[in-house]
Design a protein around this nucleic acid. Structure first.
Lengths: 329, 329
DNA sequence: CTGAAAGCGCTAACAG
DNA sequence: CTGTTAGCGCTTTCAG
């Protein structure tokens, strides 16, 4: 349990004041080249690493980014979180992970997060608060919604252009001969869900069509499966389903094949959203809209690092339609 | 960007010294009941919340737990991480998430983690270091390996009893009439992989059998699928595969069905490990060994909170065989 | 039991 | 350009 090496130790070894060491380490203020070199040598020799806690206490800012997640079992979440933490790691930022309790409002979580003097907050939960963005603005902490956005509050938001994706999905289904279609969505009042539904409806309208049903539920496999059983009971002639995400789509495909004995895509086409790894598993080969994850993350980091440079609040990035085997040719 | 309320403000309002406030907040040292009450009232009125950064600076300990993860796409990882952070949240501990770069040794990561004066470190990566446990012991920081263990180093480790699980899997396959079997494992030198393989081999030996092949690769769907194609080419009479985990098992099942046209389980039985959500999807209905996640997490927290009470280093918890539809009756 | 006082390791004025 | 000097907000002796 040896003492950590501090700036005082480095200063003593380099024969300078502790403040000089601080100036070098904080890259702040001028230091003569030779002195700087002596200090760097001493620091290296002693194995000095700055203490982030002390630094945070005085500057009022850490290099930690808070990521707020919901209790998500959705397969897109680990993919996004993993890519996000990896990108943050490359910028030498740490990630403080906050788990919103089921149903907990973000607003109640933010003050606790702010105590850690975080450099920014990225929110990936569905339940958006109304005051959260203001609280962060007040504290001068960049606040970015990832994968969803809020109508009000003026928070930065980065997401896939779900509306365009939904429209593309509709066009593809129409082009492959589908006519009797339904939307099986996830959480009703989430922006991705709303946009996907509206985009899909708009796409169908271009062909003079209207979805026979529009269901909302949860972004889960089980919901997709459950919804499908009712749907096909009411509309035995259904020939396509557009889903809120891939998890739902897998549930829809399985219900169609194993619960109802329908052929996919010969009798019913299915399109998902996200392009999670499972979407390409041989049992599904899901046609889906891939989220531009890399671009979304890059944009998020840009907003986090230079919020003042950016006037636009909402950043919608185009997804890419991936055509596989759950839609007809 | 208003000033945060500090202990000085609370002290002023309660008419006591700042030190008295500290004693109440830190629950350390004696304070008269009426004074304590006055302080609590003042704190509540002012909305005081202690500053964790300042507290950490002086005590040298935060209430943050570091969780080190690898670049895992394995579906068991999000399930475990989610459950773990939720459990930690209930103990009012924050989670600092460290992403080990691909191939990065934990040893190199630990000093950086330790700078944050974390209350403990939980490691979920595959690449274990040899010095990590010592570094943490030196710093007095509890160190727990989750889901895997190291032969040396004397670190605490909590994992499913993979050996017992492998043996049970073997017995079930033997009991349902399989005779020509193989093991398709994940990362060769990881403890779960080794134990599952050895348990499986031991289980077969009880019946006087020996696996016809024993493959190692990665804990991924793609590897399971790839391995299976070669395996069936060399052993067309294969009637069962035990897999390193569910992701591999899904790949094996898909290869069997879609690449090779074999019937599962009629011609070939498949058993996975973990019981991730996908294992119960209708397309798979995987027979598998469920990890005792809740118990593993409880044990991990116990070790983190009271490492001194526990002499035993390795904690192997029994899994549960879940029989579904990829094995015969 | 309570207050005064000394820092934790570091940054940021401020003189020199 | 460099050293001296105040603290950041809190915990923890040490007297009283």
């Amino acid at each position: 349990m040896q003492k950590r090496v501090t700036q005082r130790d480095v200063a003593a070894r380099a024969g300078v004041s502790q403040a000089a060491v601080s100036r070098v380490m904080a890259e702040h203020g001028y230091v003569a080249e030779d002195v700087r070199a002596r200090i760097m040598d001493a620091a290296a020799a002693l194995g000095y690493r700055p203490d982030p806690v002390a630094r945070t206490l005085i500057t009022g800012r850490s290099n930690i980014v808070a990521v707020v997640v919901g209790n998500v079992v959705n397969p897109f979440f680990p993919v996004a979180l993993s890519a996000l933490t990896e990108a943050l790691r490359q910028e030498d930022r740490e990630v403080l992970l906050f788990n919103a309790a089921p149903g907990q409002n973000i607003d109640d979580l933010i003050p606790g997060v702010l105590r850690y003097k975080v450099a920014g907050i990225i929110v990936m939960t569905v339940a958006l608060g109304s005051r959260a963005a203001d609280l962060c603005a007040e504290a001068g902490v960049p606040y970015v919604l990832f994968h969803r956005y809020a109508e009000q509050g003026g928070a930065f938001a980065v997401a896939c252009d779900s509306g365009a994706g939904g429209r593309e999905a509709a066009r593809h289904l129409v082009a492959t001969g589908c006519r009797t279609m339904a939307y099986v969505g996830g959480l009703e009042d989430s922006s991705p869900n709303r946009d996907r539904a509206n985009g899909f409806i708009a796409g169908l309208r271009e062909a003079g069509l209207v979805p026979v049903e529009h269901l909302n539920g949860a972004f889960t496999y089980d919901w997709g499966r459950e919804a499908t059983n009712g749907l096909l009971y009411r509309h035995p002639d259904l020939d396509a389903v557009f889903c809120g995400d891939d998890a739902i789509a897998c549930g829809v495909v399985d219900a169609l094949r194993y619960d109802l004995g329908r052929k996919v895509p010969d009798e019913v086409s299915v399109i998902g959203f996200d392009d999670v790894p499972q979407a390409n598993w041989a049992a599904y080969r899901l046609t889906t809209v891939r989220q531009p994850l890399e671009a979304m993350i890059a944009q998020t980091l840009t907003l986090l690092n230079h919020p003042e440079d950016e006037a636009r609040r909402l950043h919608l990035l185009p997804g890419e339609m991936i055509i596989r085997a759950t839609t007809r040719r």
